[in-house]
Design a binder for these strands. Structure first.
Length: 141
DNA sequence: GCCAACGTTGGC
DNA sequence: GCCAACGTTGGC
């Protein structure tokens, strides 16, 4: 099972919005970048994904689960990009802020640190476990 | 197919 | 609100 991280501007779509969508979940789109698309396409059913708030927030605030793998996004006029469906799984008891991530040597290689503009990114098993621990979340998630 | 110009993202 | 980094576009 691979792990991932997606970014969302909370003013347009926040983790609270995701939680409000309940177990039925909802689509997550807005990817207009081919690298991000590659990762989005690689997501499999049941995989877990960190939910990061960019700009206002700048913290990993929760975990979502892939409940429907990649499918076309009809709102994309170019027809090139697709989306997945997520449902909220857990919110971080203690959100893990970007400056804390940057200060943690074990997370220095995170894509979030190295390529801050990529909106969908892979997370290694080690990074996943460490961020969960820092956020006060059970590592099994 | 190269590369300059432009647009967008996102941290500060 | 500014600006650096990066992706994309389009002229050649």
């Amino acid at each position: 099972m691979a792990h991932w991280l997606v970014k969302s501007e909370p003013a347009s779509w926040s983790f609270d919005d995701q939680v409000a969508a309940g177990n039925a979940g909802t689509f997550w789109n807005g990817v207009r970048n081919h690298t991000a698309k590659q990762y989005l396409m690689a997501m499999e059913l049941g995989e877990h994904v960190f939910f990061y708030h960019s700009n206002h927030g700048k913290a990993i605030v929760g975990v979502v689960e892939v409940i429907r793998p990649y499918y076309p996004d009809e709102t994309d006029p170019t027809g090139k990009f697709g989306m997945v469906d997520f449902k909220a799984v857990a919110s971080m008891p203690q959100p893990v802020a970007l400056d804390v991530i940057k200060a943690e040597p074990g997370l220095a290689a995170m894509v979030l640190v190295k390529n801050s503009r990529l909106s969908v990114q892979p997370v290694t098993v080690e990074e996943w476990a460490l961020v969960c621990r820092m956020g006060g979340l059970a590592p099994g998630l």
